[in-house]
Structures are given as C-alpha cells and as structure tokens.
C-alpha cells in the first residue's frame, strides 16, 4: 500500500486564501467536531480541564507577522493541515501500509486498523500535518473529509470538507487541482497560488493564495479644494458648493 500511485488524474485538495483568512479558528474546531465522531478513532484530549491541556487536531491556524522593507508590518493568518502531497513521504515510510494515497483522488489516508502508531510518517511530513492520538495510539491526519465528500447520506451541497463548509469568510476552497479547468485550479492560476516548502520535494496538492498587495503609499490628494476659502471666505465656498457661482 505504501507505494504511491504512479499518478492520480484527480487531485482533490484545498486552496486556502491568505488574503481572506481572518484567523478565526472556525475550521479548526469544525474539523475537530466532524472527525471526533467520524473517520476512525475520536480525536482525544488529554488533561482537558487541567494545567496542560493538549489534544489531537487535524488543522491548526497559525498567525505570522511579516515586515516588508517599505510598508507597515502585516499579520497573516495561516491554516495548516495535510496538503495531500503527490510525492508523500509520509506514505512511503509507513512500515505497515496503514498510510496510503488513494489512486482515485489522491487523498492521503491512514487505515487506523493497520496503524501501529510508530510515528514515522509524522516525522516524514515536513508540514506537521500528522498527529498521533494519545488515546487511540494511531496516527491522525486530515482525511479531506473523505467521509463527507462522497457521502450519499448528505445533501449534495454538503459533500465538501467540514472546514470548507464552516469557513465564515470563504477562505477555504475545495476541488480537483488535477483538472486545470476546475474552479480551484482557475483560482490558483488567477491569484498566483503557491505550494509550501517546494524544496522538500513533496509536491503538495494544496495551494495557498498569497495576500494581495497592501498599504498603498500615501498618494497625493486627488481632492483639490473647490477654491481658496481663505480668500473667498465661507460665503464664497457656500456659493460655489451650492452652484450659485
């Protein structure tokens, strides 16, 4: 199983718009909620009401500051989950075959019944997309909501990942990045979508859309005063503005 499919025509994945993400963490808990009751073992929490709470999440939202050379500093919110890489190192390292990439759509999954919880795949993933569940002892990762996107018990419009469905700003897009005509591919093309850490050679499927250029430099005013108020006085201004002169 851990051999990667030679190629997958369909490449399902997410496109995340960093220009739009406000960092609300909605996708974080929607993902937690869905996967806590869905695919495989629940996403456990340790010490949930104690001094050092921690738990398994499949999607986490970072926040970075970026300081351009010649403009005010910016904050960019940055969701991070599995990128469903084409050359997924997490799959090939797996000794049991639990980790696999689906040939039909490129989704990278863990078959929890076969997972021994060795953690090797998490080491292999440059993106921190895999977390070992402390309760179940199996590796958890984003499933691209494989149990939603084809789920015939759900209405058609709900067959999308939980995080995409919940994102209030619509910063998350789901679709086939293998099809250049798909909406997501078009978006990536139009907005210059990029892959994370290309140097790691993983060929991620997911793409991030960069923040649009910000902070126009102070432009000279286009708002010329109607007339020299000092010279004409308020009455002059009033006449001019009311179209009387």
């Amino acid at each position: 199983m851990t051999s990667l499919p030679a190629s997958t025509g369909t490449k399902l994945g997410l496109v995340i718009d960093l220009d739009t993400c406000v960092g609300c963490h909605a996708c974080v808990t929607a993902c937690k909620g869905w996967n806590d009751q869905g695919y495989g073992a629940a996403l456990s929490d340790q010490n949930p009401y104690g001094a050092d709470p921690s738990g398994t999440f499949l999607n986490r939202v970072h926040s970075y500051q970026v300081v351009p050379d010649d403009a005010p500093p910016q904050i960019v919110n940055f969701p991070r989950s599995c990128l469903h890489c084409e050359d997924a190192p997490c799959v090939t390292v797996c000794p049991t075959g639990a980790s696999y990439k689906r040939a039909e759509d490129g989704i990278v999954l863990v078959n929890e019944d076969a997972c021994i919880g060795c953690g090797l795949c998490a080491w292999a993933c440059p993106y921190g997309a895999r977390e070992l569940d402390m309760d179940a002892g199996v590796m958890k990762k984003c499933t691209l909501c494989v149990d939603r996107i084809y789920n015939e018990t759900l209405p058609e419009e709900d067959r999308e990942p939980a995080c995409v469905r919940t994102c209030p700003t619509g910063a998350r897009h789901f679709g086939d990045l293998g099809d250049p005509h798909s909406a997501v591919s078009q978006l990536v093309a139009a907005r210059g979508g990029f892959a994370l850490m290309p140097e790691q050679g993983t060929k991620p499927t997911n793409r991030y859309l960069p923040p649009r250029p910000k902070d126009r430099p102070d432009q000279a005013s286009l708002l010329a005063p109607l007339l020299d108020i000092k010279a004409t006085g308020f009455a002059g201004w009033l006449d001019k503005v009311l179209g009387k002169i």
């Binding site: 974080v28 970072h62 970075y64 500051q65 953690g119 290309p198």
Partner: peptide, 28 residues
C-alpha cells in the same frame, strides 16, 4: 518557504495556533 510569505517581507511568528501542547511540539 514554509509559509510562502517571504515574497512580502521577513516573516516571524506572531501567535501560535494553540497555547496548549500537542504531539508535534512534544515529538518533533
């Protein structure tokens, strides 16, 4: 490269995604 934000300027961490611990922090 990890965030792709290098094209704008120099990125640094502002806030972590969680104040609680997690597997990545412990393991990696």
């Amino acid at each position: 490269t990890a965030t792709g934000l290098g094209t704008i300027g120099t990125p640094s961490v502002f806030e972590l995604p969680h104040t609680g611990g997690n597997y990545l922090l412990r393991e990696m």
